[in-house]
Amino acid sequence: MIWVIIISIGILTFMARVSFIALEGRYQLPGSVRHALKYVPMAAMSAIALPPLLYQSGEFVSPINPRFVAAVLASWVAWRTHNAMLTLISGMVALWLLQNLVF
């Protein structure tokens, strides 16, 4: 089943990429669709990233937990540095320290 999933996502993603290129610039997306698609990365990534910070092991948890606090710290690093690697490292280190020293 995983192969069906991988290949289906692969084909449909390729179709999205090739769509208008194949039409050779003769057609463009309607303005409203273009404006809506602009928000896909923001909305989707937030929808993936936030739930595991507040819903852990099958139940809702308080924001005062190691993962949420570490994520807030990492957000601050991302805001100040715009550096992905630094954000990742500081978030992981914060999680380990918080779990071992605070929580």
Partner: peptide
Amino acid sequence: FAVPLSFIAIL
């Protein structure tokens, strides 16, 4: 945990 972190780094 690197998954939410990497999205934070992009978002």
